[in-house]
Simulated assay, not measured.
Amino acid sequence: MADPRAVAAFLVALLPLIATPGASLALLLRQVAEHGRRRAAPVVLGTVTGLAVHAALAAAGLARLTAHHPGALAAVRWAGGAYLIGLAVLTWRSADRPPGARRPHRTGPVPVQALLANVLNPKAASVYLTLVPQFLDPGRPLPGQVLTLAAAHAALLTAWLLAWTALLGRAAPRPGPHRRTTRATAAVLLALGLHALR
Results as ranks from 00 to 15, higher is better:
residue 16 P to G: 02
residue 68 H to F: 12
residue 9 A to V: 12
residue 67 A to W: 15
residue 44 V to M: 03
residue 15 L to S: 13
residue 35 H to C: 05
residue 89 V to S: 08
residue 41 A to Q: 09
residue 23 A to I: 02
residue 82 A to W: 09
residue 4 P to F: 12
residue 36 G to C: 09
residue 55 A to N: 09
residue 19 A to R: 11
residue 24 S to Y: 07
residue 48 V to R: 02
residue 4 P to S: 10
residue 81 G to D: 05
residue 24 S to F: 11
residue 78 W to P: 08
residue 78 W to F: 14
residue 18 I to D: 10
residue 87 L to I: 01
residue 64 R to I: 03
residue 22 G to W: 02
residue 12 V to W: 03
residue 79 A to F: 02
residue 25 L to E: 00
residue 48 V to H: 06
residue 31 Q to M: 15
residue 25 L to Y: 09
residue 87 L to N: 04
residue 24 S to W: 10
residue 91 T to D: 00
residue 68 H to N: 07
residue 4 P to R: 13
residue 45 L to W: 12
residue 91 T to K: 00
residue 75 A to C: 14
residue 84 L to M: 08
residue 61 G to H: 06
residue 4 P to H: 13
residue 67 A to Y: 15
residue 53 V to T: 12
residue 92 W to D: 00
residue 4 P to V: 10
residue 34 E to P: 04
residue 57 L to W: 06
residue 27 L to E: 00
residue 35 H to P: 02
residue 17 L to I: 06
residue 71 G to A: 09
residue 42 P to L: 02
residue 63 A to H: 08
residue 52 A to L: 05
residue 18 I to N: 07
residue 43 V to H: 01
residue 28 L to M: 06
residue 33 A to V: 06
residue 68 H to C: 04
residue 72 A to K: 03
residue 15 L to Q: 11
residue 73 L to R: 15
residue 8 A to T: 11
residue 34 E to S: 15
residue 85 I to P: 00
residue 88 A to R: 00
residue 58 A to Q: 14
residue 44 V to F: 00
residue 79 A to L: 06
residue 71 G to F: 04
residue 57 L to E: 05
